[in-house]
Design a protein around this nucleic acid. Sequence first.
RNA 1: CGGGGAGUAGCGCAGCCUGGUAGCGCACGUGCUUUGGGUGCAUGGGGUCGCAGGUUCAAAUCCUGUCUCCCCGACCA
Length: 457
Amino acid sequence: MPLCGALTKVRPNHFNDLSIAMRLSQYFLPTLKENPSEAQIVSHRLMLRAGMIRQSSAGIYSWLPMGLRVLRKIEQIVREEQDRAGCQELLMPTIQPAELWQQSGRYDDYGKEMLRIQDRHGRDMLYGPTNEEQITEIVKSEIQSYKDMPKMLYHIQWKFRDEVRPRFGIMRGREFLMKDAYSFDMDYESSKRAYNKMFVAYLRTYDRLGLKAIPMRADTGPIGGDLSHEFLVLAETGESGVFVHKDVLDFEIPSDDVDYESDLQPIVDKWTSLYAATDEKHDESAEAELGDQLLNARGIEVGHIFHFGTKYSEPMGATVTDQNGDEVALQMGSYGIGVSRLIGAIIEASHDDGGIIWPESVAPYKIGLINLKSGDADCDAACDKLYKDFNAAGIETLYDDTAERAGAKFNNMDLIGLPWQVVIGPRGLKNGMAEVKNRATGEKEEIAIDQLLAKFS
RNA sequence: CGGGGAGUAGCGCAGCCUGGUAGCGCACGUGCUUUGGGUGCAUGGGGUCGCAGGUUCAAAUCCUGUCUCCCCGACCA
């Protein structure tokens, strides 16, 4: 469908709209001064301290308003890029019938990671760890002719994998939010085009999230071939070692007017032309060959795309009639992004001793407005006006109107990690000035209060 | 699933060895104080010591069992 690229820019998304403004005195934001003892890695600690999540049981979390807000933002960027690539959103259930998995043969194979449950009639059900069977069933039932092919479908849904050992907070939970897309094609060549679309969409998605993500050759599973890549985000605290030709870091991200119907192979070829491997697949000989071109870093896996041919379509009978009237088993691929895990990855990649440093695209609010002297008539008036103006201009603002001391407010705002802090205090106010701090760089500058709106619009 | 550690106030911890009915810091309430990087003083509230048995006149403390959480490893988005 050639329309797919054009639709996304003004895509209304009412159910995902987020409120623009919030007063801290009214916000449910339970921040912690001290580190909870159970949290080991920095993203877990900061998510707990910044009041984003609370643990319910091992690997299962509640999302508090601040955390949910970031989750929604990430989800929305993922959604926009999937839509742009021509992938269509649907929503499949979390609970699936066991029969579906018996058909594919995975019901017995999957093991204890699959949470199995029974309904009141004793019918075997399961909490989906993934959705290949479910989507295959849908396409099988609804598509009979090559004329309705190809199709790319995705959903963003909670999954459950009963990990033996959940850890690292949200990064390795049992319950997690995932975008999974599935492609259906008549032949391998067509399937490869779908794969390339997702490849490009992934590059764009991670870039928009403020991340350096690098595609790396991954295990090809049962099919073989070269259509399988993992996307690793570079972060010092990453779980796996990565070895990358350093020029990969400077490769160009496809722009937002990429034509997804054009031949994307050159982009994919470019991005896979230089050496990039996780430590598991690292080839020692490449190390010598690359010399000082080689970057040895650490990474977090945040996405995986792969082609698996007829692995599910065949056993489940998902066939379509081709031009000759023959029944053909569909060529399939699946494309995952760990949405909730991405929050952890972003924090791992972007924080300092003071707390989180949100990239602007996913920051819960753009501006933290700090009233240094709540209760002071002039400070209150100046802040109220700014707050209203920002609000009217659609600038997301969290207004710290509490009676805390200055130091407490600064530290708390640093912890939360909003990109900009606008500080109003009696001292600057006398001259009509505010202090603006860039959270990422730490730079502070004095700006006239009446110019703030222009700066942030 | 193998190996290790921990459950005492919302959070971080002490007390346990050598039983006598619970304490410190932060947070919270109140009053004063202070006000540009987590003020200071005073005062107050809050805990079936994970749970269940057992030993004992008496158990946070000793014994047995059990549940949960965390860490290392194997596995994974």
